[in-house]
Design a protein around this nucleic acid. Structure first.
Length: 873
RNA sequence: GGAGCGUUAGCUCAGCGGGAGAGCACCUCGUUGACAUCGAGGGGGUCACUAGUUCGAUCCUAGUACGCUCCACCA
């Protein structure tokens, strides 16, 4: 016997282990099935499962399980990302607790520590994914720092370098003075901060009493000023162009230059130019051949290029000191409070400094071209489609991708420098040495580039590096490209775009995936993005412990409507937990009636009620399949919910209860339908479905491997069961509104039933008696007795004789309300039908449908009016 | 500054050219063996506003208001 309520805990674990042990998560490369591939976005090795993960993995698991059942060779490729900065920070923090600095440790020893950490506590997330039911092919799991994947990284880097698509360049980078590394544009986050706009007055040389006033939010960069720019057309300054100003405190003479970068509308129209510390100024500097004066060291502390009193000061301390001094000198002539955006490192949270350095760059603009074309031509489609626009906008304006990072944890850049700084980019040191020998004509000592690659560089190769490239191409042939990439929009630039670029370039112009399904972000109940720093993170594992993994999965699926972020509410999870309980109890019902074991349908189905539920089953099957094929997850969930709760439990099981003991057909149909419902439910709720499939239906074959679609059953569309539902509902309403006590069991009188109506009513007699709580059904010709509550259903007059019970006033009110509703509806319909344009131009079917509705409505109104008159007469 | 999204029942959200929906909450009734994590019934919405297209608009177009997001940037 099943327990009274479903208890997920042990059951989930048991089924997860059983399905994995049976090999159902594994792909089948040698089968003749069609492959269906999803590349799992590899979570950070430092990561733990958050709600966004729970959503994305649930949706992917639904797709994988669904396609597996559809007979595909499903490959869900799992793995983990080495997450350069994040992981290095974790390990550094641990070392800091022991008062160890990574520099004291040395590079090799530090990396050793990281690997150690990874072995011990990395990858907790896989453990958590399993709790959620993730059915990935775990033995295939890859780590982006694995030897095979590292080889792919080296190969790609070298090849791109040879193609001229990776190059070394000296330009301004976003420097993170806390993490001490360059970061890419994407890792920079603009944050509004309250600051000031300070105005500084620079004296013009040889023109006593003449000043140029510039405005800045960063006065300390003054030390690096190399010019003042004014607009060439700005009449106010024309006479000053070519003159020099004297930089206060420093004494350096810098030119006033004419440059269109200067906006006459802004501030005073004169702008200070700090070429070494501002991206715009850098460009101005290039145009005017200005020198670049770097005033910071790597920690954004002022260096020897500033007056001695400021050397060694942190940038913010320097600002304070400088402002005081400038104010005293009368140089600072204005200070307006000003809220403005300041670029911050997304990991470190500190303002980044534009800093001039040598770094490695990927020529993203060139790689982007085929990647753009692939989406434009539809080889890869975004779902929802509008995200392709986001993709295009970014790709068409893409900047060189700075891929070198001054970190230790990551793929070391395969570049070796000779004594004169010449770079030799090769996959191995031996090859580099050989190239160097050819270059210099003799053996020379080389030293390898100290830097590592941006984490996303290896992630970009994920769709083919995990399939054996570059060593082995056999899996690539079978499993590349993937069917769909499932991810959030926040990762389109970081990852999707780069996989597209690398995939197109290295896989013979073949896209890495056919579809990109962009799901919503999970937000907290206030609609805020969940993040550790905000402390509003909900732990999915707490929720699975509380409500069960099936309930959480179903909730996320049901909430995953396209195009809108989802605010997770525990209420909703609770209601879907109740749904699990409902399914459980439906199964218990079968069990109590000894309808267990395997059941096939009889060859012919005679009872309308069985034909009806089979028809609804088919409709649901079709709707769910269509919904999942179109990534309309919420629709699939809704249809299943509705079918099982409203159709199967609320109506069907109640219908068959009275005759169940005697009807083999109903017993077999009830069993068959629930079993098939479990099939359809399985991708969303893998655990409770397996449990019931085994316990109730004695199936030794697991649902995870069961075929779907199943054979079309003996369904029938026009069973008139809807009529029976209407009768029962109407009678229930009357009873409720008339306060008919439960103990009262009047007869049910029906006038004007057609033969086919009469037939289905008689076949459903036992159910109607029970569900409407009536003692008999009588088909009559004459008048209803006085004191009969009346209604009209599908052209029949349906009466409930309530002599002695009926409250005439209440009945009058009820009828009047019903008539009023009917008349309002009829008025709308006739207005529509009296509109010549409607009749002429609307589709025939719509016109016919409206006519039919009007007729029905009028029949009903007439019947109700007659009932009202009889009441008064 | 550029782009996008949202505004539907008290709350959270589906739907989206032809009869306004769900879950939760609310009101009434109910414990006859699947289920009170439940059953039956009910109340509740000029689908933000304004114009347009259309025979017909919650749905399409344009604009307005409010809210939000992303990108770029304000010396």
């Amino acid at each position: 016997m099943l327990e009274k309520t479903y208890n997920p805990e042990q059951i989930e674990q048991r089924w997860y282990e059983a399905s994995e042990a049976a090999g159902h998560f594994a792909c089948a490369p040698s089968s003749d099935k069609k492959p269906y591939v999803i590349m799992m976005p590899p979570p950070n090795v430092t990561g733990s499962l958050h709600m966004g993960h729970a959503l994305t993995f649930t949706l992917q698991d639904v797709l994988i399980r669904y396609h597996r059942m559809q007979g595909y060779d499903a490959l869900w490729q799992p793995g983990m990302d080495h997450a350069g900065i994040a992981t290095q920070m974790v390990v550094e923090r641990q070392l800091a607790a022991e008062n160890i600095n990574r520099r004291d440790l040395g590079r090799d020893a530090f990396i050793e520590k990281v690997w150690q950490w990874k072995a011990e506590s990395g990858g907790m997330i896989e453990h958590q994914q399993r709790h959620l039911g993730v059915s990935a092919d775990w033995p295939r799991s890859r780590f982006t720092m694995d030897e095979g994947l590292s080889e792919a990284v080296r190969k790609v880097f070298v090849k791109l370098h040879k193609d001229g698509l990776i190059y070394r360049d000296k330009r301004l980078v976003n420097w993170d003075p806390k993490l001490l590394t360059a970061i890419s544009d994407l890792e920079v986050e603009q944050k509004d901060v309250d600051g000031h706009m300070w105005s500084l007055q620079y004296p013009v040389k040889d023109m006593p009493g003449t000043f140029v006033t510039v405005a800045t939010t960063r006065p300390e960069t003054m030390f690096g000023d190399m010019a003042v720019a004014v607009h060439p057309d700005d009449e106010r300054y024309k006479y000053l162009v070519g003159k020099m100003v004297i930089l206060p405190l420093v004494g350096r003479e810098i030119p006033i230059v004419a440059d269109e970068y200067s906006d006459p509308e802004k501030g005073t129209g004169a702008v200070k130019i700090t070429p070494a510390h501002d991206f715009n100024d850098f460009e101005v500097g290039k145009r005017h051949s200005l020198e670049l004066l770097n005033i910071f060291d790597e920690t954004a502390t002022l260096n020897e290029n500033v007056p001695e009193a400021y050397q060694g000061l942190d940038r913010f301390d320097a600002r304070k000191k400088l402002l005081a001094e400038l104010e005293g000198m009368g140089v600072m002539v204005g200070a307006e409070p000003n809220r403005h955006a300041v670029p911050h490192g997304d990991r470190s949270g500190v303002p980044v400094e534009p800093w001039l350095m040598d770094q490695w760059y990927v020529d993203a603009a060139t790689l982007a071209k085929p990647a753009i074309e692939a989406v434009r031509s539809g080889k890869t489609e975004f779902v929802p489609e509008r995200w392709s626009k986001t993709y295009f906008e970014w790709m068409e304006n893409i900047q060189p991708w700075c891929v070198s990072r001054q970190l230790w944890w990551g793929h070391r850049i395969p570049a070796w420098f000779g004594p004169d700084g010449t770079a030799f980019v090769e996959e191995t040191e031996a090859e580099a040495s050989a190239a160097a020998k050819a270059h210099y004509g003799e053996d020379v000592a080389l030293f390898q580039d100290e830097d590592v690659l941006d984490t996303w560089f290896s992630s970009a190769l994920w769709p083919f590096s995990t399939l054996g490239w570059p060593q082995d191409h056999s899996e690539l042939e079978r499993y590349y490209p993937g069917a769909v990439l499932v991810t959030g929009f926040d990762i389109i630039f970081f990852w999707v775009a780069r996989m597209m670029m690398m995939g197109m370039h290295f896989m013979d112009n073949e896209v890495p995936f056919k579809h990109v399904y962009i799901h919503a972000l999970v937000r907290d109940e206030k609609g805020q993005k969940m993040s550790k720093s905000k402390g509003n993170v909900l732990d999915p594992l707490d929720l699975t412990a509380k409500y069960g993994a099936d309930a959480l999965r179903f909730t996320l699926t049901a909430m995953a409507a396209q195009g809108r972020d989802l605010k997770l509410s525990e209420n909703r999870i609770e209601s879907y937990r109740n749904f699990v309980t409902k399914i459980w109890n439906a199964a218990r019902f079968l069990e109590m009636n000894e309808i267990t074991g395997t059941h096939t349908l009889p060859d012919t189905i005679d009872a309308p009620v069985n034909q009806w539920i089979l028809h609804e089953l088919n409709q649901t099957n079709e709707a769910v399949s269509n919904a999942l094929s179109a990534y309309r997850f919420n629709e699939a969930a809704d249809k299943l919910y509705q079918f099982i709760w409203n159709y199967y439990c609320d109506w069907y099981l109640e219908f068959i209860k009275p005759t169940l003991a005697d009807s083999d057909e109903s017993r077999r149909t009830a069993s068959y339908v629930l079993q098939k419902a479990l099939h359809m439910l399985h991708p969303l709720m893998p655990f409770v479905t397996e449990e019931l499939n085994e316990k109730i239906f004695n199936q030794s074959d697991m649902l995870i491997a069961a075929p779907w679609p199943f054979k079309d059953a003996a369904a029938k569309a026009d069973t008139n069961i809807d009529l029976v539902i209407d009768i029962i509902s109407e009678i229930r309403t009357i009873r409720s509104e008339m306060n008919v006590p439960l103990s009262a069991k009047p007869a049910l009188e029906i006038r004007g039933a057609t033969d086919s109506h009469q037939s289905v009513i008689m076949q459903m007699e036992a159910a109607i008696l029970r569900m409407a709580r009536v003692e008999a059904i009588r088909f009559i010709d004459g008048d209803f007795a006085k004191g009969t509550a009346l209604t009209s259903i599908s052209g029949m007059d349906v009466g409930l004789p309530l002599t002695g019970i009926l409250d005439f006033d209440a009945e009058r009110t009820r009828l009047k309300k019903d008539i009023a509703n009917g008349e309002a509806e009829a008025a709308k319909l006739s207005a529509k039908l009296n509109n010549a344009g409607f009749v002429a131009k609307a589709p025939e079917a719509v016109v016919v449908e409206n006519r039919r509705r009007l007729e029905d409505e009028q029949t009903r109104i007439d019947a109700l009016k007659a009932a009202l008159m009889r009441l008064d007469g």
